[in-house]
Design a protein around this nucleic acid. Sequence first.
DNA 1: AAAAATATGAACTAAAATGAACAAAAGTAA
DNA 2: TTACTTTTGTTCATTTTAGTTCATATTTTT
Lengths: 253, 253
Amino acid sequence: MLLLERRQWIEKQVITKGKVDIEELSKQLNVSSMTIRRDLAELEKAGKVIRTHGGAVSPKSLIGETPYASKKEKNIQEKQMIAKKALTIIPENASILLDSGTTTMEVARLIKDRDDLTVITNDIKIAAELIDSQLKVIVTGGELQNSVGALYGWPTQEILKNIHVDIFFLGAHAVDIDSGVTAPTFEKSLIKKLMIQAAQTTWLLVDSSKFNKKAFSAVCPIKSLEGIITDAKLDIPDRKKYEEQTVLLLGEG
Amino acid sequence: MLLLERRQWIEKQVITKGKVDIEELSKQLNVSSMTIRRDLAELEKAGKVIRTHGGAVSPKSLIGETPYASKKEKNIQEKQMIAKKALTIIPENASILLDSGTTTMEVARLIKDRDDLTVITNDIKIAAELIDSQLKVIVTGGELQNSVGALYGWPTQEILKNIHVDIFFLGAHAVDIDSGVTAPTFEKSLIKKLMIQAAQTTWLLVDSSKFNKKAFSAVCPIKSLEGIITDAKLDIPDRKKYEEQTVLLLGEG
DNA sequence: AAAAATATGAACTAAAATGAACAAAAGTAA
DNA sequence: TTACTTTTGTTCATTTTAGTTCATATTTTT
């Protein structure tokens, strides 16, 4: 195993587990504890870990991260850029519908200090994030999808049939130029479809890793979207394909 | 366990519980009380905690933190005892309805590790607390009451009219032998009434500080309750009055 | 292929974390 | 207040972990 490879592996362990133990790493990686110590010293210099006797801990766990954070951490910067871009298209006093997901969560974080918006969401975590805000927040009810925090079921559907919002920020796991937006389960796509119907305009918020993927159940074609907001990592050829069918906004650092 | 890992753990305890006890930490973490003392000394230097005799408290709890946190802190031990007692009346595979509030939140914390229950709640914070559990959780939708986390409005009412549960754990701000349970707003009492109707049995969970108080809007008379669970601080004369009309269970340390 | 730079492991010394014992200080109750 | 109990802080011995140095191995450069 290469040096850099080993350090990345250690870094990952720190992120996912929150801590690492020198003796343990030494056994797992078949190197001496001295080597691990040197690795940790480097990782500490780079600000990736904080060393402590016997091992190291994540610098983030000091500021109160949850297990949820580890998943969220993925592409977090891209998501924040996308969210920032999304803010530019929200007018004053708008009502917005936030899909469940981590990208839309970033949007929620950014609008937290405003007081002119009405936010509707089916994501418990987004709702919890907005508890201490001055915004008007409406939560669709229903069954909680454990560990994710999204709400599904008839109450959600019922509410969605009875509301109307200015903008819907749609999240997705898979986007493809031919299949359009797709979701992993039938129920998720149903909710998303209802959300689209409840909104004047729908903007898709996805980081570039979601492109050219297909999931089980169709949500909508690209053409029907008002636009897509994604990060600048999307290939130029891909960009052109999508720009033929809709507006493409790129969030940048 | 690593030193920094342990300190992070303690820090988290201070944040979530508001205070920590040295002897308790010593047992939980399997280190001597001297070590805990040194940990607390360091955490105090870093401004993370404020030391007290026998333990430490959160620096935020002294300056007033969020409304929720400070409110939660009040009578926290009583609430935990009440919640513990409430657990004893929940049968296997029961469906329970949890009212919004801090006492019912303690019930949620205690059932988090079970997987046989169905929980319905109109409290976003309770729902968020149960995200990582194996329980079936149903959230009533509606408008979010900012800073509190309760949901109101027609979606909540609609759902409540369409469900049936075994046990409803009712929270209250005011209980009086003559006026019964009362709530500060009309809408709150309406939701509570609907919850009572949706449940086979209703148990009132209140700490003793809520007794002999009246609020604006009536919820239900004492007689109609299956029982009241409160803490042992309730006067003996009061106890007798309530025992004439319903079952009284006392949570004790 | 030889030389230089880098990485690794082992041996040893230095530093630290920990717990126990006991004296000092702070609460608590009469 | 005084006596009593509990909690703290200091010191020191022990154990664990870290860092330094040097020899060896590996990779990169020339």
